[in-house]
């Protein structure tokens, strides 16, 4: 092997056993990936509960009477667009462009907030009409599942604000870059959860 090194100018790639510990960037993102997958498993339990209880309306309203497809379509558009702008923001972070980062973060935040406002309005309307979580097993499961996603979005928005403060104060420090990479993973994962939410809860609900 040493002879081969001497003969060629290109250094051979290190074997995994000789490469030493992986850079922190890789370890942190992988650890966060594991967390996201466990978070998705938690969502799976809530989805399972919802799917089992979807018909247990106890004489109360079902999905056909409750859900507005227009509102869901707008919410979906907001979240999908914010996922896109979040991706553009992570590109700006990679090439250390301040303006692109702030702009991407601002649009992502605004779209996330619009999503949350629409969802809260939907919840408030239902509760005012007496169709809150205590009305039936179906509605308990609905508010738990959709509300849990909403809480995740809220946490994501707070996290985004905190990250922008860190960019202002510390610039593109490696720590800040790692955290921003984790944030964009989180935000994209929330969009995947929402894909299943609008499919299972809203689109299948309006046909039942």
């Amino acid at each position: 092997m040493n002879i081969a090194v001497a003969l060629s100018d290109v250094p051979p790639e290190l074997a995994a056993s000789e490469a030493g510990p992986a850079p922190k960037r890789v370890v942190v993102a992988y650890g966060f990936w594991i967390f996201l997958l466990s978070d998705i498993v938690m969502f799976a339990t809530l989805f399972a509960a919802y799917a089992v209880l979807a018909r247990a309306t106890d004489g109360g309203p079902n999905g056909v009477q409750l859900f507005s497809q227009t509102s869901v379509a707008v919410e979906t558009a907001c979240l999908l667009a914010s996922s896109y702008t979040c991706g553009l923001m992570s590109l700006a972070v990679k090439s250390r462009r301040h303006l692109g980062t702030y702009f991407g973060a601002f649009v992502t935040f605004a779209l996330g907030l619009a999503f949350l406002a629409l969802e809260l309005r939907e919840f408030a309307d239902m509760i005012v009409r007496g169709d809150g979580p205590q009305r039936s097993a179906f509605l308990s499961a609905f508010f738990t599942l959709v509300g849990c996603h909403g809480l995740h979005v809220t946490a994501g928005l707070v996290w985004l604000v905190v990250m922008m403060v860190q960019v202002v104060l510390r610039g593109f420090h490696p720590t800040v870059q790692r955290r921003l990479a984790c944030f964009s993973l989180f935000w994209h994962a929330l969009d995947i959860v929402w894909v299943w939410l609008f499919t299972v809860v809203y689109l299948m609900g309006v046909r039942a």
Partner: peptide, 9 residues
């Protein structure tokens, strides 16, 4: 980082 795995995202 060629010797290492690529992080997700």
């Amino acid at each position: 980082d060629t010797a290492f795995d690529r992080p997700p995202g």
